[in-house]
Write a protein that binds this DNA or RNA. Sequence first.
DNA 1: CGGGTAGAGAACTTGACGTTTCTTATGGCA
DNA 2: TGCCATAAGAAACGTCAAGTTCTCTACCCG
Lengths: 207, 207
Amino acid sequence: MTTVSEAGKTAHGAADHRKGPRRRGDALHTAIFEATLTELTAVGYAELKMEHVANRARASKGSLYRRWASRAELVADAVHHTIPSCAERPDTGSVREDLLSCLRGFATLLNGPSGEAIRGLMADTIRNPDLMDVVRARFIDPGVNLFLDVLRRGAARGEVRTTALTPRIASLGPDLLREYFLVHRPPIPDRALVEMVDEVIIPLIRA
Amino acid sequence: MTTVSEAGKTAHGAADHRKGPRRRGDALHTAIFEATLTELTAVGYAELKMEHVANRARASKGSLYRRWASRAELVADAVHHTIPSCAERPDTGSVREDLLSCLRGFATLLNGPSGEAIRGLMADTIRNPDLMDVVRARFIDPGVNLFLDVLRRGAARGEVRTTALTPRIASLGPDLLREYFLVHRPPIPDRALVEMVDEVIIPLIRA
DNA sequence: CGGGTAGAGAACTTGACGTTTCTTATGGCA
DNA sequence: TGCCATAAGAAACGTCAAGTTCTCTACCCG
């Protein structure tokens, strides 16, 4: 069930769908999501064409546009559904390890297709500033909350000064990571993460 | 000499150039730069069309493409020429004031047409990753050097611990500012700058 | 002053978006 | 079970701007 199409793909990932059954509702929705992610992985956001997604999903462009107003909305929805729940809170007993663990998790995401998507969504932000709010709500804020939790647990252990529990400081990790991601080409080297933690965050939060 | 065209503009900024003299070389180059910046200010990067720039500059698309391979290169060149030299180093005698002054200068730039351009260039980065290097070299690294100078002068006065004179810490200001810029819609509130300085940079560099 | 270079301008090609139209399959409901 | 409104598939279409190519002509240099 990992791949959608069975055979007869064309150069652009189109499937031969002269005889497939016709789906509706959730089944179609899901198929389009899968096709979107496959295309995203295969050709990246910049080269992701609505028609190719439609073909790969054995659907029509009309079905796509009936559900999403634009490529950005489709991709944002599709990627959001695949992101592992941020419930996986690291808890190693050491703030430094927890922070690094969070950053490494984010970096892994950003180094993959989700990163491609986020980079593309941020790019589309020029034409559609409302997208910023979507990106922040779906892909940024959850990360900040995760960091805030880590800091709070560190404060409970006495590792973190309580005055460091501000949004500004909690978002430093995600901010610096995203900054690095946007300004350099992938992948993000682990070295950069360690530097962020050891040179910036740890000195700032130390009790 | 501020504006290029004299009269008879159309809705898209095209000039009536049935009878204008024909320029070459630098004169044309300059006229295209001015037209690019005017268009950038008028309609923004997303809506900046090569044909409109050509019309406004009383030039042909051919002349544009003979000089620049793409819209991104044209805009990068044009904006780079207008950015005030980073020689204006603030030196108030206080690191905090110097840092704030730098950040305010950058924020003012980002809040204007240059910001529009940088946002657009970063967006085009998806299709042309080489652009990242151009953007970093022209619009990012100079800022980091400016900050490094400020920190060095602060260290000479004893305000800054010398171990804080690292690229990672010097780029914190520009990084956080750019991050804010990319993730929020303009303008950048002064409040955000003060927070960056007082909650992050100052506590980190204090001797 | 004459010829090569470069610019103006318009036509053209291409590629994708987003829409529309027509046909047909599907699933709910009587 | 059979009807029918709804939604799907497919293809064609209109639009728009990128980038190229063509012709004609102005400018500069020798």
